[in-house]
């Protein structure tokens, strides 16, 4: 699809918007609808759109699959690590109340970290799956 001018121009202006929206969904998930799951999917959709329009190789240059694999593990680690940190700060596993200062601030930080871990994992796993499917078709 590399020759299609309209697609290239439109997607070039659309992809930054999609990424910004994904970040908004990620960090505004506490107040409105959204959260890590949705943000990860939207962010990966932006990259998938890029891969569809500009070709798979260009997309893999932005995010090499090695980095994606590390990111997928990193997301789970952030999540589980938050739980470990709460253990050290005197609470139960994944009980964020004692993370910082007051209970509400601790809960807020904990939820933010956990959602970040979810978002990173979902984003990278969706891209891993897509690249696996798309890369299979190459000769």
């Amino acid at each position: 699809m590399t020759h299609n001018l309209i697609l290239r121009v439109v997607s070039k202006s659309l992809i930054p918007l999609i990424i910004v929206f994904a970040l908004y969904v990620q960090f505004h998930g506490d107040f409105g609808p959204g959260g890590g799951f949705q943000a990860g999917v939207i962010l990966s959709a932006a990259i998938i759109l890029y891969a569809l329009v500009f070709g798979l190789d260009a997309a893999e240059q932005i995010i090499p699959s090695g980095i994606l694999r590390i990111l997928a593990g990193l997301g789970v680690l952030i999540y589980a690590g938050t739980g470990i940190v709460t253990l050290f700060s005197g609470g139960n596993y994944l009980d964020y109340s004692g993370l910082v200062g007051s209970q509400i601030a601790g809960q807020h930080l904990g939820i933010l970290l956990v959602e970040l871990g979810v978002g990173i994992t979902v984003f990278s796993v969706m891209l891993i799956i897509f690249f696996a499917f798309a890369g299979r078709g190459r000769p």
């Binding site: 799951f37 999917v41 979902v122 796993v125 969706m126 799956i129 696996a132 499917f133």
Partner: peptide, 13 residues
Amino acid sequence: IVVGVATTALGLA
């Protein structure tokens, strides 16, 4: 839903 799409991807693979 998200787990569902993961299993769907596995089935398609």
